[in-house]
Design a protein around this nucleic acid. Structure first.
Lengths: 340, 340
DNA sequence: ATGTTATGTGCAATCGTTTGCACGATTGTT
DNA sequence: AACAATCGTGCAAACGATTGCACATAACAT
């Protein structure tokens, strides 16, 4: 009956009649070999019997390793993040690490505060899904030598590990798909330029249009200040109001595409008959929209899992050089894109 | 420059020329009053200057309080949970607590393991969104006196605090709505009876049908083993195959309703023209389905927030009696229900 | 002037583990 | 048989913060 009174390593030691340090060595796989197998068995049995559970706070105090990791995300209710978090957790859990989560709503002061409390909790490393291209937290971690991995978004700073998807390829897939359907006048609703995803997708859009011999009219690129439905609606409405002809919209992500759906409906334009739309992310349920959204699927779960693995690697092999990894996205063709 | 070398309370003490215990007292709001204000200022300044951050592991070791909370959920990628988690986090964060998350996929062994590592991390309390009506983890926490709050689902055990929504009311709203549309032959696809939500909704369905003077044909109640789309599809297909006439389905949750959508389509039945369908939860995007789903909205975020608050209360006032709280759901009428 | 109380700070033990060091016992070498 | 090397375990000092207790010093009462 492991009751309220905590059972410590000393209790186990007394029960067996050995010194606490011996118990410690038995319980640590790395040092177990140094102890007589008879004692190992007795100690293991006693530990199980008493319901001994190592006190991580004490261990962490001594070893400076807590096996807990801070994970900062903008907002868990954004459907983009749960699979990423799940991937992170699974990878961390498999290696004996736990995640401490923090939502920051993209507010810098909350990010700072969250990092402060996490560091106070002696986290062994940090995973950021909140990085801006120019991010003081990234700089701080690098300066302090705190193991850090960026996921989904990356930063401009070098020497930082990141797991992101190949934004350029994703946009290329979307643009080429539209071209193959006969579209030539293609608009882009870009994400915030302060985020790597916004900037990379925008740049890729221009490059691919050029490379495909379609001219990318700068007036057909609309700007947003956030990857949100509202912003997508606004930007699409502006595009429509601009009066320039276009037959397709490449939205910088699915939420923006949703906003575009609304703007089109508001302007009595039909999707896909009048305007084809592509998204980015393949959020849950976009296959159920009407029309089902053609979008770029990014491997969210794998993104998170790789981030978790990379961080563990970084922690356990401190001189691993930083590496930026890109995962391959896929184009998922659905009903929101048709021949022109 | 708070560099890699950790700055401790001793460093601050030396800088000011006082004893470490004095620094500790200054930094603790509760004991600060006992120290001369001049020293308080010097210490505060030095702490800020050196970038001192209390080591929570050390503090936790001494005080037996870590201000971290374990949160167990089945699966964060289920859209039901993110708002709950967000609510929990917000409430905990406001009180200086952090959440350690664990996904268990409803697998008992993973639940046990997750609780074990969390307890090893000296959590101050536990929030379970995974509770079964008969749940050994709940029993264990009660036995060991670990503060515990159940959220979303509750358990049969008494003496346990829980924040759930009023399942009975939710189902009553759905059934009365259907009745008001003229439906009399109403089917129910029930959730697992091992979960409080499954059982409560099922029981309520029977009671309300009775109370409304509609006879609830037992053959019109289909069972599922999980709150999933697949299970909903299977159960709805069975109902249809059963050959009994019905004009509406009350699904035990939205995912099951989605499955019912598919089963109806497979059987060439139109929703809502042939069969009206109601869901439960009002998950994100069910307003975008075709037809948009009539469903019972539960206050997810508030559920989580209340759970967080309750747990903090339980921790800081240990003799607060356990309380079961129900939050009011609302019926959201959309396109999936029409007059018969 | 003496005794009493209040006040502010220092002292040192403590929380539970880990780990370098020491030391006795065992084994192997010659 | 003497010595060295190896092995297994105990000892005790950390890790960084908190806190009951003690003890000066100051303030006050008589």
């Amino acid at each position: 009956m492991p009751n309220r009174a905590r059972v410590t390593i000393r209790d186990v030691a007394e029960r067996v009649g050995v010194h606490p340090s011996t118990v410690s060595r038995v319980l640590n796989p790395a040092t177990r070999g140094r102890i007589t197998s008879e004692i190992v068995e007795k100690v293991t049995a006693a530990a199980a019997e008493l319901g001994y559970r190592p006190n991580q706070a004490a261990r962490g105090l001594r070893t400076n390793r807590t096996r807990s990791i801070g994970v900062l995300i903008p907002d868990i209710t954004n459907p983009l993040f749960p699979p990423i978090i799940r991937g992170i957790e699974d990878a961390l859990g498999a290696n004996g690490y736990s995640a401490i989560l923090g939502n920051t709503d993209n507010i810098p002061s909350r990010e700072r505060e969250a990092v402060a409390t996490m560091r106070s909790r002696q986290i062994d490393g940090l995973i950021l899904a909140t990085a801006r291209r120019d991010d003081p937290i990234v700089a701080e971690c690098i300066a302090d030598g705190l193991p850090l991995v960026l996921v989904n978004r990356t930063a401009d700073a070098d020497g930082v590990s990141s797991i992101v998807n190949d934004d350029a390829l994703g946009i290329a897939l979307a643009v080429r798909h539209l071209k193959s359907l006969g579209h030539t006048r293609i608009a882009h609703i870009a994400g915030p330029r302060s985020l790597s995803t916004g900037e990379a997708r925008r740049r890729s859009f221009l490059e691919v249009m050029e490379a495909e011999g379609l001219d990318a009219d700068p007036a057909l690129i609309a700007e947003t200040t956030a990857f949100s439905e509202d912003e997508g609606l606004l930007a699409a409405a502006q595009l429509i109001a601009g009066g320039l002809r276009f037959t397709a919209i490449v939205a910088a992500n699915d939420l923006i595409a949703l906003g575009a759906y609304e703007a089109l409906a508001d302007a009595d334009l039909k999707c896909p008959d009048d305007v084809s739309v592509t998204g980015f992310n393949d959020m849950p349920f976009v296959d159920r929209l009407s029309p089902p959204l053609t979008t770029v699927r990014i491997p969210h779960y794998e993104l998170g899992r790789e981030a978790g693995r990379r961080l563990v690697d970084l922690i356990e092999n401190p001189n691993t050089p930083a590496r930026a990894t890109m995962l391959r996205p896929d184009l998922i063709v659905r009903g929101s894109t048709v021949k022109v």
